[in-house]
Amino acid sequence: MVSLTNKTMLALTAVAGGFIAMIAVVVVYGGLFVRSASETCALDEAGLGGFVDIPGGGFILGADPVYAHEGPPRRVFVSPFRLQAHEVTNSQFAGFVAATGYVTEAEITRGSALFEESETPDVFLSWWSLSPSATWRTPDGAGSDIEGRALHPVVHVTLNDARAYAAWAGGRLPTEVEWEYAASLGLFDPADPESGIRARDGAARANIWTGVFPVINTRRDGFAGTAPVGCFEPGLTGAYDMIGNVWEWTTTPFSPGVPRFTIKGGSYLCSEGYCRRYRAAARESLEGDFSTAHIGFRLVQDPARRGGGT
């Protein structure tokens, strides 16, 4: 592995939510990326590729901001569209590659960013490294593969990779406004911005980091890394995993003069005591030609367009 550039380190730091306090004692509960022994989820291979209809309407963009770059809240109107009910999976992306011969940017260039147990856990950035062997085919780096992960969201894909898939599959990537609008409509309790991660009785509704980030993951939600799509109840729109699991690309630039694009939804690396970006209004950014182990995507379609691959 090689060290990340300063620019990329800063971007990844932002994605994870900022620096943590120094932690003297390391306790890793069950490993970082060990999958749960039981992964009984609502979706199977036959159920992939579905879309839900998102009606047009108005909503408050950037409602209840936690970080300055999420606001100010403002009312916007959104045209109707169709939203893929789940994140694009490894099996779907494999079908695209088989049909087109597409090669991802991580496979062509420098690899992709991995988050792994560190020998210096008190240094947050040491948990991230650029692995030349990390790709969508080998999500944990050398020696790994996607055997048994067909229904997990594809990761280590750049914005450009996601756009290429979308063009083939008969869709497009959402804008930030479309994504946030759909996520907001899906909330179980519009008055509670965090109702996407837990029910009133405390039951998990999303795959996030449970425990002390980054050294203790209790796997209270059943997973330590990515989860197969559809393992948690869908939101009120019928869409799964709008919060948690993996961040999702949008086509919206993050801010004027910043050469990065907005990602939404948080991931399995967002914790209650650290990141708090598992809310509809939360946003972060990354360069469009960079990829990581915790960023994926889903598609949208315009209402008149109902065909396309899966």
Rank of each mutant, 00 (worst) to 15 (best):
Met1Gln: 12
Met1Gly: 15
Val2Leu: 11
Ser3Leu: 14
Asn6Pro: 12
Leu10Val: 07
Leu12Thr: 08
Ala14Ser: 09
Gly17Ile: 06
Phe19Asp: 10
Ile23Asp: 14
Gly30Glu: 01
Gly31Met: 10
Arg35Glu: 12
Ser36Trp: 00
Ser36Asp: 05
Ser36Ile: 00
Thr40Met: 06
Leu43Phe: 03
Leu43Thr: 03
Ala46Cys: 04
Gly47Val: 03
Gly47Leu: 01
Gly50Asp: 08
Gly50Ser: 06
Ile54Ala: 00
Gly56Thr: 06
Gly57Glu: 07
Gly62Tyr: 08
Ala68Leu: 07
His69Phe: 13
Glu70Gln: 10
Pro72Val: 05
Arg74Gly: 05
Arg74Ala: 10
Arg75Leu: 15
Ser79Asp: 10
Ser79Ile: 00
Pro80Ser: 09
Pro80Glu: 03
Arg82His: 01
Leu83Arg: 06
Ala85Pro: 01
Gln92Glu: 14
Ala94Val: 10
Ala98Trp: 01
Ala98Thr: 08
Tyr102Pro: 15
Glu105Tyr: 12
Ala106Glu: 14
Ile108Lys: 15
Thr109Gly: 11
Arg110Cys: 03
Phe115Ser: 09
Thr120Trp: 01
Val123Glu: 07
Val123Gly: 00
Phe124Asp: 07
Ser126Thr: 13
Trp128Ala: 05
Ser129Ala: 03
Ser131Leu: 04
Ser131Cys: 14
Ser131Asp: 14
Ser133Ile: 00
Ser133Leu: 10
Trp136Met: 08
Arg137Ser: 08
Thr138Ala: 11
Pro139Trp: 01
Gly141Asn: 04
Gly143Asp: 01
Ser144Val: 07
Ile146Glu: 02
Glu147Phe: 04
Ala150Trp: 03
Pro153Lys: 09
Val154Ser: 03
Val154Ala: 04
Val155Arg: 11
Leu159Ile: 11
Asn160Thr: 15
Ala164His: 04
Ala164Ile: 09
Ala169Met: 11
Gly171Trp: 06
Leu173Tyr: 14
Pro174Met: 07
Pro174Val: 08
Glu176Phe: 02
Ala183Asp: 09
Ala183Gly: 13
Ser184Ile: 02
Leu185Glu: 02
Phe188His: 11
Pro193Arg: 00
Arg200Lys: 15
Arg205Lys: 12
Ala206Phe: 12
Ile208Gly: 14
Trp209Asn: 09
Ile216Glu: 15
Arg220Ser: 14
Asp221Tyr: 05
Gly222Cys: 08
Phe223Gln: 05
Phe223His: 10
Gly225Val: 09
Thr226Gln: 06
Ala227Ile: 02
Pro228Met: 06
Gly230Tyr: 01
Cys231Phe: 04
Gly235Pro: 13
Thr237Phe: 06
Ala239Ser: 11
Tyr240Val: 06
Met242Thr: 11
Val246Asn: 02
Val246His: 00
Trp247Arg: 11
Glu248Val: 11
Pro253Lys: 12
Ser255Thr: 12
Ser255Trp: 06
Ser255Arg: 09
Arg260Leu: 12
Thr262Asp: 04
Lys264His: 07
Gly265Trp: 04
Gly266Glu: 02
Gly266Asp: 03
Tyr268Gln: 03
Ser271Asp: 14
Cys275Asn: 14
Tyr278Cys: 15
Tyr278Met: 08
Ala280Phe: 11
Ala281Phe: 00
Ala281Asn: 05
Ala282Pro: 15
Glu284Gly: 04
Leu286Phe: 13
Asp289Cys: 04
Phe290Ser: 11
Phe290Val: 15
Thr292Ser: 15
Gly296Leu: 13
Phe297Glu: 05
Phe297Ile: 12
Arg298Thr: 13
Gln301Phe: 04
Asp302Asn: 01
Ala304Val: 03
Arg305Trp: 05
Arg306Cys: 10
Gly309Asp: 00
